[in-house]
């Protein structure tokens, strides 16, 4: 198992230009406990999952995903993005314990 919060945002390796649509892949290591798994006779493993994923392109927030525990462990999220200008692409993950994880990559055209 890897450490919780280890994360990556990947841009395509190939060349891309203005107005091209690229695929951005994001992933974070997180147990995403849904709170419904029994733990021996002691009770249930408490909820602990990523409940918000936000994507900012420059200053504009373009995507905001409010998730339940219905996303898999180590949530993976890939989206298409139309490249309109050079700007940082920032992905923010928040979990039910209030932890916040951020990763930024630069889009250059």
């Amino acid at each position: 198992m890897l450490k919780i919060g280890r994360r990556a945002v990947r841009l395509p390796r190939h060349e891309y230009g203005k107005d091209d649509v690229i695929e951005v892949k994001t992933r974070i290591i997180h147990p995403n406990h849904n709170g419904r798994h029994k733990y021996e006779d002691k009770g249930y493993i408490a909820q602990h999952f990523i409940n918000l994923i936000e994507v900012y392109y420059g200053d504009q927030r373009i995507i905001s995903v409010d998730a339940s525990a219905g996303l898999s462990q180590n949530p993976y999220f890939t989206f298409a993005l139309k490249v309109t200008h050079s700007a940082p692409l920032r992905v923010v993950w928040k979990d039910t314990r209030g932890e916040e994880y951020t990763e930024t990559v630069d889009i250059r055209v």
């Binding site: 406990h33 009770g43 493993i45 408490a46 909820q47 602990h48």
Partner: peptide, 8 residues
Amino acid sequence: FDITPAPP
């Protein structure tokens, strides 16, 4: 992880 008595 924490243990809770009841599921959500």
